[in-house]
Design a protein around this nucleic acid. Structure first.
Lengths: 111, 111
DNA sequence: TTGACATGCAACCGTTAGGTTGCATATTCT
DNA sequence: AGAATATGCAACCTAACGGTTGCATGTCAA
């Protein structure tokens, strides 16, 4: 789970996921073309994405094909976002009530 | 958006969000008790969460109250997870088809 | 078989991130 | 007013990160 968040933390890596989202199964060379850095840098990023299991690779001859694996993103949603989502309005209401309480206290202390 | 992903990338910060999820509106001191690091380190983490707008703070006298703001998480869901979710089965199917194709090519080349 | 192509591996480097320590400031309590 | 409490600010340190360069390896094609 931590690896997934870490992997998503970098814009270049998110861009790579976006590229695969547009066209799945691209080679390393293909993915490099859209990023302004060396092939080796891209390799490292893809390595992290693979460690986080967000990308799965398959060799075809001398080419390495990269496929998007949407499962970890789904897990992040299930185990993280959804949990907060459930209390979304509640949290905002807490904040509002907190603010009002402070304001009232301040008004009392005035003059 | 980048700030939100960066903020979520650290386990200590996710733990802070969890604490606020359990009990909203905690002071800095309160939040510190559950983490094994100095107050100043926690302050920095909370600073990042605040920059990412995941946490909103209010002063009450000498105390600083921290409230969870669920909106950025919701935005991540809308602009990111949902987008990939829509193509979830499709992506897995791409991967499967890719694998089968490679397998067939290998079988042809055998012997 | 030789050359071009696609990728891997490893060492190196500057910047950022996470953490510490020390001291300053503002508020509350007696 | 003075002490205790809650927090802020700044300098500093180490490790990790994002990137580079150089060279090695394996595959395809003439």
């Amino acid at each position: 789970m931590d690896a997934v968040f870490k992997a998503l933390a970098d814009p270049s890596r998110r861009s790579l996921l976006d590229q695969l989202h547009k066209s799945n199964g691209q080679t390393l060379g293909g993915l490099c073309e859209h990023l302004d850095m060396t092939r080796q840098a891209v390799t490292k990023h893809l390595g992290l994405l693979e460690t986080a299991n967000l990308v799965v690779t398959v060799w075809r001859g001398r080419e390495k094909l990269h496929y998007l694996n949407p499962v970890p993103l789904h897990e992040i949603y299930e185990r993280w976002i959804e949990k907060y989502e459930r209390h979304r309005l509640e949290a905002l209401s807490d904040l509002k009530k907190g603010l009002e309480k402070i304001k009232k206290e301040n008004d009392h202390g005035k003059d």
